[in-house]
Amino acid sequence: MATPQAAQTIRPQQDAEPLLDCSKLVRRFGSRTAVDGVSLDVAPGETYGLLGPNGAGKTTTIKIVCGLLEADSGTVRVAGLPVRAAPGPAKRLIGYVPQEVALYPDLTVRENLLFFGRLYRLPRRRLERRVEEVLELIDLTARGEDRVDSLSGGMRRRLNIGAGLVHSPTLLVLDEPTVGVDPQSRHAIMESVRRFGDQGMAVIYTTHYMEEAERLCDRVGIIDHGSLIAEGTPRELVALVAEKDQVQLVASGDLTRYAEACRALPEVEGADVDRSDEGTVHAVVRDARSLLPRLLDLAHANRVQIRSVEIVEPDLEAVFLHLTGTALRE
């Protein structure tokens, strides 16, 4: 997507009134509870990631937020406006980007943007001006007169996001916008989402890719079986699994003695030798980066030659595993 023009960076206004306020949302489909008491809020300028595996309740939550589904109980307010009681004014503030490419394939890029703009009753001149801005933002100005079915998959994804921006929403809701996208387009989409947050837009972003949530989101809510089981900044969530890193040292020499020496260090909670492949010492340590020079000194002192070092820090995947006992992509 296009580089922003003199984008003003606005960081989350944590103390401000939340732009989106969801309280105790419950939605059942027959006997199955898809959303079970989800509460979350998003501040202006904040990018909030809703992370969870397929079927966790992310899309159902998003559809309740956008007024596409009614909650059995609970409330959603956008800028203080209740979505259920006053859907019109609240919906005007929301830009919804669905998971699928929800566009008319046989209309042109420009016609699609004009169509979605007209649904928000934008005055003609403002709409035309805004369409040009969005085309520039999603880097499709040159393809404005092309039919959507002639665009590449990545371009369609960008247009899919653009169609949610035509009416200049203050809350952008993106439901897994990078599913099935090539790495280049994925990177472009993530960069543009980051810019939307920088420009003051509140963004709620669902994904089951933990690396996206870590890269993009100011705060992340982890959802599983319809319940929000943890919420916080990525760093706060990682802290939930304690600050233990893994260090893998591929080396040669007397690795048994080296592992014993490592275990003697107070920061090392465990160290073992794995001889199945090359000689490797696995160590579980606190704050691997600061401890690494001492581990290397210890190897030199024990005449062990280090060939490679890998540090594995805990991530949201580990957090999810820690909280649910299952991997995120299962």
Binding site: P89, I94, P98, V101, A102, Y104, Y120, R121, A163
Partner: peptide
């Protein structure tokens, strides 16, 4: 086709 592609769903997210 509109039902399948999600265009209607998206349109209903607007004040429509």
């Amino acid at each position: 086709q509109n039902r399948q592609s999600g265009v209607y769903s998206r349109a209903l997210a607007a004040p429509v």
